[in-house]
């Protein structure tokens, strides 16, 4: 019961933060030097056209009024029109977002599973050669940026040893499944087009792996540290003294309290993941949301940029809430004594 109260509180607070985010983004987009309409149309466009676009974009109105106009549209699901493609941004994004969500979901999965299991292994064999190797690998994982991993992986696993495809989302010969959710994997599975689903999965493994390396390494380090730390706690010593089997201690009594720290910091790793997706999609020429964002940025497509940042803000906030729910599940203190936490 109290867990739901906690989660609802957390969600309400997040909505407040997102409201703040919308203001922040709007302010930033308005202190840009230069006239967005002029930038959109280029230096040679006639003055009357610029004037008309300014009116269309409500640039002639005061900033507060413009914010509320924009927010009103936003709540209706209208993100405005791309200045570049002259299409509704909502349409653009609904096309590109599922592709990115596939990568992000897979890499969050890699991050948690690889990270936690490596950390567990490292703690289980602490101070042996295996622990040493894992610790060095984790350090390298942390200091190597995702786009460098992307380049190295592409070089090794798709050129040197061609196991994985180099670029794109699906092989040219394969027809994508009809659109239901927009995710080729889910749609492929739903429509029985397993070939397309598998091919898509095959395409996103390298980018997802590249994106997850830093977070996985961080999680491995944290898991190891907190397991080694907790292994010396009295409650684990007591469990050993009571003759509870070693395996049960490691997999249950020691692991659960030790997961709280690594999962808490995963919130930060997911922030890094969402940012790094911009570079990694570029390396793999992946037609995803982040690449759409980069294109928008390079062309100063104002409303598209605002929308991309806003959606990432939403995604990040949702990820944070999910992580908090996991923590609440793991840690009774968080879910039951949570009144002062929000």
């Amino acid at each position: 019961m109290s867990m739901w109260v906690y989660i609802i509180k957390r969600i309400i607070y997040s909505i407040g933060v997102l409201f703040g985010v919308s203001i922040l983004i709007f302010i930033i987009s308005n202190i840009v030097p230069g006239d967005p309409a002029r930038i959109a149309l280029g230096p040679r466009a006639p003055d009357w056209a610029v004037k008309r676009l300014r009116k269309e974009m409500n640039l002639d109105k005061p900033i507060v009024e413009r914010y509320f106009l924009w927010l009103g549209n936003l709540l209706k699901g209208d993100l405005g029109e791309s200045l570049r493609s002259r299409r509704p941004i909502t349409k653009d994004i609904s096309e590109y977002l599922p592709a990115s969500l596939e990568i992000i979901a897979l890499s969050a999965f890699f991050m948690a599973t690889i990270g936690i299991n490596l950390g567990r292994l490292s703690a289980r064999f602490s101070d042996t050669w295996l622990d040493g190797v894992i610790r060095i690998v984790s350090y390298i994982g942390i200091v190597t940026p995702a786009f460098v991993w992307a380049i190295l992986f592409a070089l090794i696993f798709s050129y040197l040893i061609p196991i994985f495809p180099t670029t794109g989302r699906i092989s040219p010969g394969i027809t994508p499944p009809p659109r239901i959710t927009g995710s080729y994997i889910i749609d492929g599975l739903l429509t029985g087009n397993f070939k397309a689903a598998f091919d898509t999965l095959w395409h996103i493994i390298l980018p997802a792996l590249a994106l997850s390396m830093g977070g996985a390494a961080q999680a491995a380090r944290m898991t190891r540290a907190s397991m080694v730390d907790n292994a010396e706690k009295d409650y684990i010593l007591a469990a050993k003294a009571y003759g509870i089997p070693y395996k049960l201690i490691y997999k249950k009594l020691l692991l659960k309290p030790s997961l709280i720290a690594p999962i808490s910091i995963m919130a930060l790793d997911i922030a890094a993941l969402l940012g790094n997706a911009f570079l990694v999609e570029l390396v793999f020429l992946y037609p995803g949301f982040s690449r759409y964002g980069v294109e928008a940025m390079l062309h100063k497509d104002l409303f598209a940029i605002i929308s991309v940042v806003l959606i990432i803000g939403v995604a990040y906030t949702v990820a944070n809430v999910v992580i908090d729910i996991i923590i609440a599940y793991l840690d009774p203190r968080a879910r039951m004594g949570a009144e002062q936490n929000v």
Binding site: V21, V32, G275, F278, L302, V308
Partner: peptide, 20 residues
């Protein structure tokens, strides 16, 4: 908190995009 709700690299990219 509002600033922290946007991944730093994304915020930096967006601002850099709007500037020269």
């Amino acid at each position: 908190d509002v600033f922290l709700a946007i991944p730093p690299l994304v915020l930096a990219l967006a601002i850099a995009a709007l500037l020269r």
